[in-house]
Each structure stands twice: as C-alpha cells, then as structure tokens.
Amino acid sequence: MKTWRAEVNVSELEEHEAFSDDDADLLEASSGLDRALQLTGALLWRGRREQGVRLLVIPLAFALFFLLLCLVTLYFPGLLTPLSRFAIQAQAQAYFGATVRGNAGLAMALLLIQGPYLIALFAAFMGATLAQNLVGTEAARGGLELLLSSAYRVQEVFVAFLLASFVLTICQWAILALGTLGAAATVLALLRIAFTLQARYIALAVAVPLPIALWANLGALFLGMAFPRLTQIRTGSTTNLMQLLAALPALALLILINIRPDLNAGLIAAIALGVGLAGSIVSAVLLRLRFRPEFVLET
C-alpha cells in the first residue's frame, strides 16, 4: 500500500474549517425541528441509495401477485377453497346487497373486498422490513452510536428515524395500493367486466392499510430495538420473527374477514382503522421510552 500523505496541510485544514471562528454562534445554528428534518433528509437519501430499485420492485411484485390472484379467480375459480368462495359471496352480499354471479363477479369481489386487507398485510410486511433495514441494521452495525455522536439531540435522532421510516413506508404503501388496485382494475376493465368503485370503497382501501402498515413499521422499530435477537430467528427465506410479529395485526384482520364474513364490513374497517392508529401511538410511545442511549448502546 502506498504511504499516505504524512504531513497535514494546516492551511488547507483551516481554509475548510467549518466552525472554528465563533463558538458563541454555534448553539444558535438551527432549531431542533430543522435539525431533525435535515437528518431525516440524510436518512432518506441513504435509504434510497441502499434500497435502490427494491423500494419500487417489492411493492410492484406484491401488486403483480394480487393481479395473478384476481386472474386465477377469474379463469380458475375451482382453485378457491369453499371457505374463500363462501366468504367472498357473503362479503359481496354485505357490501353490495347482492349475490355475486359468475367468475367475473368473484374476481371483482375479491379485488374490491379482500384487496384492501391484502394490501394492509403486504404493506405491514414491507413496513416491518423497512424498519428493520433502517433501524435494526443501523443498531446492529453500531450506526446508532455514531449518529448519537453527531450534532443532534437524542429526540431529534428519534424523530428523524420515525419520519424517514414513515415516509418510506407511505411511499411503498402508495405504490402498492396504486399498483395493486390499479393493475387489477385495469385488467378487469380490459376484460370488459363492468364495475364501479364507490367512494366508500376508496376510503376503505386507503384508510385501512396505511395505519396497519404504520403500526407494523413502529412495532417492528420497537421490537427490533427492544429485542434485537428477534431479527435473527428466521421464519422463512426472507422473513424473521420480528417481521412476522409486526405484521400479525394485518394477518389477523385478513383472517377475520374471511372466517367471519357475516360481520359488518364497515364496522371491521372502522375498528381496524382505530386499532391501527392506537397501536401506532402506543408503539411510538414505547419506542421513545426505549430510545435512550443507555439502552441503544452496546455495552
């Protein structure tokens, strides 16, 4: 290896000296919110560079999976289990006050009724994965210690992580929701299957998955920080126990609407929304309590 330049050019250093002139002005540099937002920007920049096209590809892969589900329902309805077929029929009755007729009706009902809950489940998995990538990996490589050594207060680092995680989760949710519903609806329209999307449906499709995904995101952040070993317990080729636990509420919701199609769909959506928001708030509070240097740092 070549020898590095041994002598530091002092004049160059001084020329580039960032903050040496007036220490008194130092503490007035920027407000806490400004600092948190600047750190959020840096974390988002790094998240985008680290994740690259995966940020786009993963939600689109989920969307493709859902599209295939719709097409399978349309062309191979015999593959649906009796319980799924019954659930879709019962939900269609509850939603539209009519019995679904034919394969096209089944596919449409799957798209309209199960779609938001499937999006919630996918978004929850993605939210948990993002949280793991952003904070879990950071903690594992000692990056949290490094960030806490930089010119931010602990609460600013906390807010920045939360914001960066939220922004990425929301972006992925938006791609997922648009991709899933848009692709499925487009294909069904191309197949000349007439349907209309009611405002109530749109509201449901938007309102239910997001808080569930954010809850999964926050839950994963908390679990990853409080119990880092959870990330080492594999539950599949690409998932671990932390992701599974964080996505459990979304999974429970999907199972619930399938095994109890007789329950009021609007009420379930409202409960899911409320529980998702409450869960997010509780997880955020728990996370803040845990986000203290003496817990975060390795000893």
Partner: peptide
C-alpha cells in the same frame, strides 16, 4: 466550553471513531 450531551451543536466540532467502523455495508 459546552456540555456535549446538552449543547448538541458543539458536537459538530468533535470527530468520533467508534470501536467498530459502522459503515453502511450496501453503500
């Protein structure tokens, strides 16, 4: 002249090398 855990801006004048390199592996 500042308490770094309270006056976080002074940390801009501090360079720190932790025990581990702590680099972002994918970057």
């Amino acid at each position: 002249g500042y308490e770094p855990h309270r006056d976080s801006e002074v940390k801009r004048l501090i360079g720190y090398l932790p025990h581990r390199p702590s680099l972002s592996a994918a970057l």
